[in-house]
Nucleic acid binder design. Sequence first.
DNA 1: TATTAAATAGGATTAAATCCTATTTAGGTG
DNA 2: CACCTAAATAGGATTTAATCCTATTTAATA
Lengths: 157, 157
Amino acid sequence: MDLFFEKCRENKLKITPQRVAIYKALTASVSHPSAEQIHKEVKKLFPNLSLDTVNRTLVTFAGAHMIDVVEGHGDSRRFDPNREAHHHFYCVSCRKIFDFQADSFQADPLDSLVLPREMEEKFLITGKRICLTGYCDQCRSKMAGKKLTLVAVKHRI
Amino acid sequence: MDLFFEKCRENKLKITPQRVAIYKALTASVSHPSAEQIHKEVKKLFPNLSLDTVNRTLVTFAGAHMIDVVEGHGDSRRFDPNREAHHHFYCVSCRKIFDFQADSFQADPLDSLVLPREMEEKFLITGKRICLTGYCDQCRSKMAGKKLTLVAVKHRI
DNA sequence: TATTAAATAGGATTAAATCCTATTTAGGTG
DNA sequence: CACCTAAATAGGATTTAATCCTATTTAATA
């Protein structure tokens, strides 16, 4: 919980009972829950907690780097026809996906990826990719100086 | 287009004008479009092409490994409280996310990732992860022997 | 060319995310 | 410690994406 309080203060996020409960519920989770799952859980303590609050709170936490938003990011399904081995950078602000390859003088790091044996044996792996997240150049400058707040349009910058 | 015909035959997918057009539109795309974007494009040729057809076709193509479904996978947003460096395996069938670390005797391949200079300079990178996709052990056995078809519940196995 | 399983269209439904507005509250300030 | 205000919340409405359902059409094969 130390991280929670520290990051809240750092980002001037108010510490509310709901937020504490949401954060606790997430850290206690074994899987990688959706907002709805967290909502269901925390409703036991706060019967009239709204789903919107959960979603916005979690996205805000992610913005403060207390947690991560993982696949999916909550937006629509996207497709990629490129069959060459390549990697992705996903801009969490504009949601554009940028392709990249590791620096050309280096070998692709995935070539040297050795998976845990159990996984290699049990799972059927059909795709491997490095996924970076962050802010693209455009969004980076747009957000310069803006402070983190829940009053966000579409949870974006 | 060779891959298209080859993979269609291989998977016993009928080659329809709509499918050809959808595939072409995707390969012609520069970004990583959503079904809706492709729909909008292909509608120019087939004014009464339905969005459902586009979505199902694209997901089917992905099942046949002609294209990839990338972030997001089309399901709800998921959260992860784990701050330790780790990687993900995403089961495209049950949508569970499994954490893993590279084999413990190896260094994490991301440690040696050298990004293109332009990217390193311009983008603000806040997260790095290896993302594997495929079928987890349970789903793998469930789907054994099932053939690929568009008649799928929730586009799953 | 006849057959049939597979694919499509189009509208209905579901589900997730977000919006909107009134109300409440955390945290700073006098 | 009470007040003040910006920030957060609740709850319902709306929007958007994905999927479902069913009647119709069609690609592939024999």
